[in-house]
Amino acid sequence: MTRVWSETLYDAYGQHFNTDKILFESKTEHQHLLIFQNARFGRVMALDGVVQTTERDEFIYHEMLAHVPILAHGNARRVLIVGGGDGGMLREVCRHRSVESVTQVEIDQAVIDMALRYLPQHSAGAYDDPRAHIVIGDGIDFVRQTDLRFDVIISDSTDPVGPGEVLFSDSFYANAKRCLNPGGVLVTQNGVAFMQLDEARETAAKLSRLFQDWHFYSAAVPTYVGGVMAFAWASDNPELRRQPLTMIEQRFAAAAIKTRYYNPAIHQAAFALPQYLLDALAEETGK
């Protein structure tokens, strides 16, 4: 009989995966890690009972969290990734030849090791890129202590119930801002807004106190169930998310990157948000 793995993100709703093979399972110091094979989604990685990434749909998440800020910025040379141990974000960032240095701060070495072994297509060699600098540590400590400055900061974290909790704190956002070059941008994964509206509200309240411009953009990732995933956007340069389509098209063409989800029209449209989310954000921030 096929074994079934159930995601336990919600009590009253959830998704099931048939598991064809368990590839890896461990309780590390920081979290419970599971990687298994599913016929529809390929290899699936879950942390603490929650799907983090799958081979088949990861491109949507990683392309949108990497290319939107980098191409909106237009001159991103130094990029910081917080989390992202599966390597997918590093892969997408490294595809920009204009990026000179990528620092990735991951709390759990085991996640990187297991992803290299069991999800090699996620990093696709990016960990060998000479521009990549890997730091094993807590992202909050890194942004508090580092002297480095970045044009783009990408928070590719877990759900807030878990070691990623601090990456949703005032302190993290304030210190991330401190680490941004003038005109830089911070983007963060912020959950599925329909299911987790509180997370978007709370992030909005925090970002609105720190940044001149903040917003969310979205993409539908099949295994982040319950609607579109929201990505938070924060910058002191309000122009970054209002770039004309032609400029994004030019930059995308110049980058010469082949994508499967991202394109300039999607880039622009992603900032259009459903009304329930806009209403909740307005209620929270008075914006």
Binding site: T8, Y10, D11, Q31, H32, D48, G49, V161, G162, E165
Partner: peptide, 11 residues
């Protein structure tokens, strides 16, 4: 509560 949710017990 957090430990329980991270384990996956939601009741």
């Amino acid at each position: 509560i957090r430990d329980s949710l991270r384990f996956g017990c939601t009741t």
